[in-house]
Each structure stands twice: as structure tokens, then as C-alpha cells.
Amino acid sequence: MTTYTARATRDNDRYWLVHVLELGHYTQARNVPEIETMARDLIATLLDVEPSTVDLEIDIQLPGTARERLARVESLREQEAEARREAASEARAAATELKRAGLSLRDIGKLLGVSFQRASQLTSGR
């Protein structure tokens, strides 16, 4: 199966111009979510196949350094998710240690900045 590449560039600040490279044909899309649909429909029409059977890669040409900024956003989001996982693990460990030291769930919750119900969950191993 041939993989088609649809390269989308912004055209006059209103539409996305979508070029299916392998076929040398163009179509337009009003917004980013529509790019894939329009490219699939163009290919399907030209080749007389079902749009769902088209193997397609989308290459959106972004202005300036936007692509690098979006990559940085993704990287920072991954770091944030990892930091949240680590923080949750440390909160469980701290809650367990405080419970072993004899503190009440209300005190543990206050120290961790969570409700006593959440402190109970953290110390129960769930």
C-alpha cells in the first residue's frame, strides 16, 4: 500500500492549502482538523477508493519557530507528568511513614495538603 503525504501550508490567513505530493493535486481545508479529511477525500476521489483505506501522513508547515516551540511544549508536558508521578510516590511514602509514626489521618492530611480521606487512601496502599 502506498503512503501518501499531505503537506499543509497556511494560505492567505484563511485556509490551509493541502498538497498531496505523490499525486501532485491540491485541496483546501478551513482548519487543522479538516486537513486529514480533505486529503483523504481528494486521494479517494482521484483513485476511486474508500477514504478509510488511504495510508496518509500529514506534514503541517508551521510559521517561524512554532514547530520547535510545540516540541518544547510536548517535552515539558512529559516532564510535568513524570514530576507528578514522582510527587505522588513521595506523598504515599511520606503518608505511610507518618502513619507508622502514629499520626492521625487528619494530621497526615493537613501536613500533605490533602483531605483526611485522601490521607487514608495514601496510607492504605490503594
Rank of each mutant, 00 (worst) to 15 (best):
W16M: 06
E97T: 14
T27A: 13
D11Q: 10
E36F: 09
R72V: 03
E50A: 14
V20G: 03
D107Q: 11
L111M: 14
I43T: 05
L47V: 04
A8K: 00
E74K: 11
L76R: 00
E36R: 07
S52P: 00
D11T: 01
A29K: 01
A101H: 06
A44N: 02
I35P: 03
R67A: 14
L21Y: 01
L46K: 12
G113A: 08
L62M: 13
R40I: 04
A95T: 04
L111D: 05
T37D: 07
I108V: 13
T9F: 06
G113T: 09
R14C: 11
I58L: 15
H25P: 00
A88D: 13
T2F: 10
E80P: 00
A81S: 09
D48E: 12
T53S: 15
S120K: 09
E90S: 05
A83K: 13
S52Q: 10
E34K: 07
R92L: 05
E78T: 04
G113F: 02
R72C: 03
V32S: 10
P63H: 12
M38R: 09
F116H: 15
E68L: 09
T96D: 11
E57C: 02
T96N: 09
A101Y: 02
Y4D: 00
E34L: 11
V18S: 01
A119W: 13
A101D: 14
R30F: 05
A83W: 13
G24P: 02
T3R: 03
V49N: 04
I60Q: 08
R92N: 07
Q121M: 02
A81K: 13
R69W: 12
S115C: 04
E68S: 11
T37W: 00
R85H: 12
M38T: 09
G64T: 07
S120L: 05
E86I: 12
T27F: 00
A29W: 04
Y26M: 05
Q117C: 05
V54E: 01
V20F: 02
A91E: 08
R72T: 12
S115A: 04
P51Y: 01
